[in-house]
Amino acid sequence: MLGLFRDIRKHEELSAFLPEACRLSLRWVRLAPGQPIRPRQLPGKGMIVITDGSGEVIGGSVRRVQAGDAVLVPPGGLQGLMGGAPDGLSAISIHFEGEDARWDTPCLCATAAPGGAPSDRSESPLDRLVEENEAHAREFAGSPLMQLIRSERALGDDVKRRMLGALQIWSNAFQKVLCARVVFESHPAAIKIAERHLAEEVGHNRRLARMHGPSSSPSWDRGIAAASSWFIERMGSASTEERTVLIHFVIERCADILLSAAQQVFPDSDYFATHAEVDAEHFRLGYELLKSLPGLDIAPLRGALIEGWQMMNLICQRISDIAELGCGAAAELPAPDVVAGDIPRGRAALSMAPAAE
């Protein structure tokens, strides 16, 4: 899934208000700056209403859109969007499957007219890096863990319990990754973002632990531990730019896909919904930071991107194995309840004292 989607028909009052005969589907779309929904062909008519921010319609030609614009897509037309700087965009995407509809709002066509001028949009190296990140994200969306989450098997109590336990192992480790970033970061703007990110995430592993209780306390797993340790080590050895890619592009994009889908498996918990809503903002913070840094060298960032996704795929493969196969998939040893505490800046110490909730 690209961007953050919410099915409006699942809202009780809106579902009761919309007539069944209109045969349409509604989606709420949120895209960070540079985050695309790739053009795809619609079998019927479609309409996109931009509710906030700005961006571009992608499909044949490229057209700028902003809050208040409506985009009409004819049957067979291409529909795609990309969030624009500085705040991305929010929109309502409507797909019609019934009779022709009439509109009295101004619109922009999402496809080029015959003989239309080609796009003059030139992509920056950073934008191309975002596209590469989305390619990795699409591959992850088809991974064994995501297939499991979308299947009926994920609804079984034992699978859900084991999945939460495995997610707990990574959640504990992610707290350490964020702490390490704060300790080793030296760029002033990056320090502010790292501290803000840590403040927003601190204690979230305890919230997750409360979902499954002490009877299924997290276990140590050598696969997740090894890949997590790689991220922690890279927080110390990587550049500011590489840290930003690993945290904001790789981990947060992976979490966006995973936690958004997990809402369907755990509908009674707000843990996954809360995370899914803030992950797009975390991506935007990283994108804007990289955009502000002069002389950006993309080559090492591409290397960090590839390695980071490989490690996240290892972690998520282990989570899938543990959820599917049970205790035999993991080496079960007691794991400490790690929560980030007050972090001194510099390389001297990495405090793991429990934080007040």
Score class of each variant (00 low, 15 high):
Leu296Ala: 04
Gly295Asp: 11
Arg161Ala: 15
Ile94Ala: 02
Leu148Asp: 01
Ser122Asn: 03
Gln66Trp: 06
Arg234Pro: 07
Arg181Cys: 09
His11Tyr: 12
Arg243Gln: 13
Gly44Thr: 04
Glu307Cys: 03
Gly60Gln: 08
Val177Leu: 10
Gly46Pro: 03
Leu208Met: 15
Arg162His: 15
Met235Val: 09
Ala113Asn: 01
Trp28Cys: 02
Pro214Met: 10
Ala262Met: 15
Glu281Asn: 06
Ser292Lys: 02
His204Lys: 07
Leu2Gln: 11
Phe5Leu: 09
Ile149Val: 13
Arg318Asn: 10
Arg138Asp: 12
Val65Pro: 05
Pro300Glu: 02
Arg63Ile: 04
His204Asp: 13
Trp309His: 13
Ala225Asp: 15
Asn205Tyr: 05
Leu164Glu: 06
Cys179Met: 14
Pro344Phe: 00
Leu4Arg: 06
His282Lys: 00
Glu288Leu: 09
Pro300Arg: 02
Asp87Ile: 01
Gly286His: 04
Leu126Phe: 05
Ala16Lys: 09
Gln79Leu: 15
Leu305Met: 09
Ile343His: 06
Met211Pro: 00
Ala154Trp: 05
Val49Arg: 08
Val339Ile: 08
Arg345Asn: 09
Leu126Ser: 02
Arg302Asp: 05
Ser54Gln: 12
Gln41Ser: 11
Ile319Cys: 14
Leu333Ser: 11
Arg222Gly: 01
Gly83Gln: 01
Leu208His: 07
Ser237Val: 00
Ile298Ser: 11
Leu42Ile: 07
Trp309Phe: 15
Gln147Asp: 13
Pro344Asn: 04
His275Ala: 14
Gln264Gly: 08
Gln66Cys: 10
Cys316Val: 01
Leu285Gly: 03
Asp221Tyr: 06
Met146Cys: 11
Pro354Met: 00
Glu242Trp: 05
Thr240Tyr: 03
His212Ala: 10
Ile322Thr: 06
Phe283Lys: 03
Arg181Thr: 06
Gln41Met: 12
Ser237Tyr: 00
Ser122Arg: 09
Ala101Cys: 06
Glu131Asn: 09
Lys160Phe: 03
Arg153Gln: 09
Asp297Val: 08
His95Trp: 12
Met235Glu: 07
Leu72Trp: 14
Leu325Met: 09
Ala330Pro: 01
Val183Leu: 14
Leu108Tyr: 05
Pro267Asp: 04
Arg6Tyr: 03
Ala356Gly: 14
His11Phe: 14
Gly68Leu: 04
Gly326Ile: 08
Ala91Pro: 07
Gly98Arg: 09
Gly98Pro: 07
Arg27Glu: 10
Ser93Val: 05
Pro43Lys: 03
Ala154Asp: 02
Ala331Ile: 13
Phe174Asp: 08
Ala112Cys: 14
Ser186Cys: 08
Ala199Leu: 07
Ile251Pro: 01
Ser351Thr: 04
Gln35Val: 04
Arg138Trp: 01
Glu12Gln: 13
Leu178Phe: 05
Asp279Phe: 08
Gly286Cys: 10
Gln175Tyr: 08
Ser151Ala: 05
Ala335Ile: 15
Ile251Cys: 12
Asn133Ala: 12
Ser186Glu: 14
Asp7Cys: 00
Gly53Tyr: 11
Leu296Asn: 04
Ala225Ile: 08
Ser269Leu: 14
Leu89Gln: 00
Pro86Asp: 10
Leu108Gly: 08
Asp270Val: 11
Gly326Tyr: 07
Glu132Thr: 06
Ser25Lys: 06
Asp297Pro: 02
Ile322Ser: 08
Ala135Asn: 04
